[in-house]
Structure formats: structure tokens, C-alpha cells
Simulated scan of single mutants.
Amino acid sequence: MRVLGVDPGLTRCGIGVVDGGHGRAVRFVAVDVVRTPADAELPERLLAVSDAVERWLDAHRPDTVAVERVFSQHNVRTVMGTAQASGVVALAAARRSLPVVFHTPSEVKAAVTGSGRADKKQVGAMVTRILRLTEVPRPADAADALALAICHLWRGPVSARLAQAQAQAAQLAKAHRARLAAARRKE
């Protein structure tokens, strides 16, 4: 499975591609950071992010897109820009009928370092080690994008099985409630 990981942002948007094999085997494919000038108008910045993501989707043909989930920060303007960049990424993937999965920063950190409270330096070091890179991807947005892809490769199958099990359990519970209701009506 090939995953495009995206660490969304307007100033810097990390994009990385990782291939997953059997078990926890992963292989580095590519990484980059899309930069937009802070003084550019919002539509121009979103267009630049969109164009770059579209190019990467076409060039690398991922099976899934993993995006960092926007979380509450004190700076509303930063959150808005990150959310808008995330939307552009999700839209580009949807146009290609690609699944988009959102992972929280703590999920990503826990998946690659073992701790949901790891700092950027620890994430970068583990991404470098896991993917057998010669140096830490810079800036941190690049390492974060690769970490998102790794996180999805390692957690995605488990999450999918869990969701499937929950759906089956809900169907069984619904059928059981229907049988109980029918039995009560017969009494």
C-alpha cells in the first residue's frame, strides 16, 4: 500500500510518500515541503498547495491519503489556515476517489515514537531510523508528513478491522433488539 502523508499548513505544507509491505515494513518514496509566502492572498496560497498536492497525487498514485487532524490551538488564524489547507488536500483526494484518513498529532507521535507526547526532534529521529534515511528530513513538516504516512500504514489496518467489528456488532445488536421486540409482541 502506498500512502501520501500530508502535514497541512499554509506557510509550509509537508508532503511525503511511503510504501508499506508485510507487517511493519515501510519504504521511503519521496518527501517535500510546499511553501507559500505569508504575504500572498489566501486564494493564491490555497491554489499553490492544491497544485502541489495534485502533482504529487498524479506522480505517486497513492492508495490512501493520511492528513494530520487539525487540533485546537491558541492562534485561531493558524488553525483556520491549517484547516483550509486540509480541506484542499481532502478535495484533491476525493476528486480521485482516494480515501482520506485523519490522524491526530498524538496518534502519529505514539505510532512512530511510542509516546504521544514526543517532540519534533524525537519524531524526526524515529522517521529517519524507521525509513533508514541518511539524515533527518528538514524542515520538521517534511518529517511529520512521513510520520503521518507511517502511522497510517501501521495503524490503518487495525483501525479498519476495529471499525468493521463495531459495524458488525451494531448490526447484531439491532437484529437482537428486533427479535426481542417481536417476542414481546407475541406475549
Score class of each variant (00 low, 15 high):
residue 146 L to R: 01
residue 177 R to Q: 12
residue 111 A to C: 08
residue 152 H to D: 10
residue 65 V to F: 05
residue 161 R to E: 14
residue 3 V to R: 06
residue 89 V to Y: 05
residue 178 A to T: 02
residue 56 W to L: 08
residue 55 R to W: 05
residue 27 R to V: 06
residue 8 P to A: 12
residue 107 E to P: 10
residue 11 T to A: 15
residue 26 V to A: 11
residue 46 L to H: 10
residue 155 R to N: 12
residue 134 T to C: 02
residue 81 G to M: 14
residue 69 R to F: 14
residue 117 R to D: 05
residue 105 P to L: 15
residue 176 H to A: 08
residue 63 D to Y: 04
residue 164 Q to S: 04
residue 170 A to T: 08
residue 70 V to W: 00
residue 26 V to F: 03
residue 111 A to W: 09
residue 14 G to E: 03
residue 67 V to T: 12
residue 104 T to A: 15
residue 100 V to N: 07
residue 58 D to R: 14
residue 33 V to K: 06
residue 106 S to H: 15
residue 91 L to V: 11
residue 11 T to V: 12
residue 55 R to Y: 00
residue 148 L to F: 00
residue 86 S to E: 12
residue 150 I to R: 10
residue 147 A to I: 04
residue 63 D to Q: 11
residue 65 V to S: 10
residue 126 M to C: 13
residue 113 T to E: 01
residue 101 V to Q: 11
residue 42 L to Y: 06
residue 84 Q to S: 09
residue 159 S to A: 15
residue 177 R to C: 00
residue 79 V to G: 08
residue 97 S to R: 15
residue 31 V to K: 05
residue 87 G to N: 09
residue 54 E to D: 15
residue 150 I to Y: 09
residue 51 D to F: 02
residue 14 G to K: 04
residue 125 A to Y: 09
residue 36 T to W: 11
residue 128 T to Y: 04
residue 115 S to G: 02
residue 153 L to R: 07
residue 66 A to N: 03
residue 118 A to K: 13
residue 131 L to H: 02
residue 135 E to C: 00
residue 99 P to T: 09
residue 54 E to P: 07
residue 47 L to R: 14
residue 20 G to T: 03
residue 127 V to Q: 11
residue 156 G to A: 11
residue 143 A to H: 05
residue 65 V to Y: 06
residue 55 R to L: 11
residue 8 P to M: 13
residue 68 E to M: 13
residue 14 G to R: 07
residue 167 A to Q: 13
residue 152 H to R: 04
residue 79 V to W: 06
residue 130 I to W: 05
residue 19 D to H: 08
residue 139 P to E: 12
residue 143 A to F: 03
residue 8 P to T: 08
residue 37 P to Y: 03
residue 6 V to F: 05
residue 29 V to I: 12
residue 52 A to W: 06
residue 83 A to K: 09
residue 70 V to E: 06
